[in-house]
């Protein structure tokens, strides 16, 4: 089955005065229909940029798509004109942003804004649009939707606002919803509610979800497939269980080790030493080698290739790949 959305070897650079920040440096991933795909990584590793590129929202200049392709339903969408892109945005691919506090326009009521999301793409009567808004708010679990529609964003709580944002994203029944850290700005109890909401909605509407997060606990809740990003590249990818049970890349291992867990109570949490490299000055070879405890001489020189562990589980660490193979054989 061909994937709904496929990103192939995408490269997005940001040109500064003297430097070129390689925000995304050859990233490929696929989202199949009805699937939840998680992009995981630290801040600044290119997760959000890759999502914005899918929607054609990278500001150009300074941004620049240096290479690669994006296919949506088998059609290349990178070279589309602005008007054609507007047909896809919101209607076929919708996005939920990180900050529900600032993602709603403060001068219009919630109802106006959801209605706009519908009316931009569909020519329907105002009353029909209104009843659809009520239905959407019900779907995202907002009590007494009729009254909330007349509220301004500042009258809602953070969780409610994020629900409204989700309702706006769902307004035109998109095939894919891209959720860019939708729970980061919310407190933990609300996070859980929003996650459950995403799961329910996805089941009910049979849509795909591209979920961008840095929170592995969230990933464990909802993911089918995981892509771990580091410094603009994908370092490991695979099914959720495979990655959590047998992480094959030192970076993924580090991330998992730094998760708090009941068994680790009382001990100091592991943290990966060092920081993410500046996208304008990435280390040569494997970008992770300065922070890696398994780093060998080859890591400084050669850019690592993807190593296949079978069943779609790939990892960009030849050193560990060799080691596992020598143990097995």
């Amino acid at each position: 089955m061909s994937p709904l959305l496929s990103v192939q070897n995408l490269k997005v650079y940001f040109r500064g005065d003297e430097t070129v920040a390689r925000a995304i440096d050859g990233v490929s991933y696929e989202v199949h229909a009805g699937e939840t795909v998680c992009l995981v990584g630290e801040s600044g590793c290119g997760k959000t940029v890759s999502a914005l590129t899918i929607l054609g929202l990278i500001p150009r200049p300074p941004g620049e798509i240096a290479g690669g392709k994006i296919f949506f339903k088998g059609r290349s969408i990178l070279g589309l004109k602005e008007e054609e892109f507007q047909q896809i945005r919101g209607k076929r691919i919708a996005m939920v942003f990180q900050e529900p506090m600032t993602s709603l326009n403060p001068v219009f009521t919630v109802g106006d804004q959801i209605k706009e999301a519908i009316m931009v793409h569909e020519a329907i009567a105002d009353r029909q649009a209104h009843s659809r808004c009520v239905g959407l708010l019900k779907d995202v679990g907002i009590p007494s939707p009729e009254e909330r529609l007349r509220d301004y964003p500042h009258q809602l709580s953070g969780g409610q606002r994020q629900r409204v944002m989700i309702a706006m994203a769902l307004a035109c029944n998109p095939n894919i919803v891209i959720a860019d850290e939708p729970t980061t700005a919310l407190d933990v109890t609300i996070q859980k509610q929003i996650l459950n909401l995403f799961k329910e909605l996805q089941k009910a509407r049979d849509m795909s979800l591209l979920y961008i997060t840095h929170d592995l606990n969230v990933v464990r809740e909802i993911a089918d497939c995981i892509y771990v990003m580091y410094a603009g590249i994908i370092v490991e990818q695979g099914k959720m269980e495979d990655l959590f049970e047998h992480a094959r890349h030192p970076y993924t291992m580090g991330l998992l080790a730094s998760l708090p867990h009941r068994a680790k109570r009382g001990r100091i949490l592991y943290s990966i030493p060092g920081t993410v490299p500046d996208p304008a000055y990435k280390p040569g070879g494997c970008p992770f080698h300065p922070r890696c405890e398994h780093a060998a001489g080859i890591c400084k020189k050669e850019f690592p290739e993807m190593c296949d562990y079978g069943d779609g589980h790939l990892s960009r660490c030849p050193v560990l790949y060799e080691r596992t193979n020598t143990v097995t054989f």
């Binding site: 507007q86 919101g90 942003f97 993602s103 326009n105 001068v107």
Partner: peptide, 25 residues
């Protein structure tokens, strides 16, 4: 502002963003 990006992500055109989202603000 985020809400302008959000409106763009919904497929709202430039003119509508200027007149409906930005001028009132």
């Amino acid at each position: 502002q985020d809400f302008v990006t959000a409106a763009k992500a919904l497929g709202v055109g430039d003119r509508r963003i200027i007149f409906r989202h930005m001028i009132p603000n």
